[in-house]
Nucleic acid binder design. Sequence first.
DNA 1: ACGAGTACCTGGCAGC
DNA 2: TGCTGCCAGGTACTCG
Length: 283
Amino acid sequence: MSRAGSRLGPPGSTPAPRAAEPNTLPELPEVETVRRAVERRLKGRRFSGGSISAVTFNRRPSPGLLNGLSGLRLEKVLRRGKYLIMRFSGNRVLTLHLGMSGRLVFGGASPHTRLILRFGSETLRFIDPRRFGRAGCALPRLGPEPLDKGFNSRYLYASLRGRRAPIKALLMDQRIVAGIGNIYATEALFEAGIRPGRAGRRLSRWQARRLCASVKKVLRAAVSLRGATLGDASYLDPLERPGKAQTRLKVYGRTAGACGHPLRDSRKVIGGRRSRYCPKCQK
DNA sequence: ACGAGTACCTGGCAGC
DNA sequence: TGCTGCCAGGTACTCG
């Protein structure tokens, strides 16, 4: 299957790129916003029961996932990359990944509810129409947090050494750095003036330093604006409020960059995804 | 180990 | 208006 096939015909016969409504999906800033909301509302409360719906995630959680949680106190809500970690007394944890369309919502109701967690009078629902989300009790191996000191230009440069894959695919590789997806990889590469298709090993030390700084800058700004919400099937926080970071996006979901130049979609699909960049500003 | 390709899923859209 | 089929995305899998 060639997704690009329909757009590679001769000019004139090529249909205009479909202006698919861009959506913002949960990446680090969105998950962090969810984390704060959940912790604020539920920290210290005791788990009083929950259920996994019959039609659940694409990757079914273990049926016993919630066994033994009843009566345990939610001590902390943590985030690692795009994963949310609910830590209970007795060293029990519940890990959640929102996937593409996953939302955690207080109260409410939805035909796409996959998981319900009750804390006394409070109810937290995991709603996920596309069923790409998941729930478990462990995390995969993940790279450093991009906002931690462990993610620095030296580390990034070393991680890219010898890698022929496009830099954008490497930025979105959760084992290299955790929490970056299509939106913030696109934004960080624009900010750093680097084309998404450039091979990882072709970045200079200076470019790695610039990219590292751009990643931090873009993510910090998005966290402070409580994530990005563009389009309908987009991210909302647990109180179903949109974020404001979309107002700062310079490339993602736009036809002209914040630089004023028309943007281009890379001919090659990177990491299975199409990629947009400014051919004038990104080298 | 690495890189490319693909399955998973469904709302929303273009094109007929 | 209604139908069909494409497309988006993150992760985990396979294959070479």
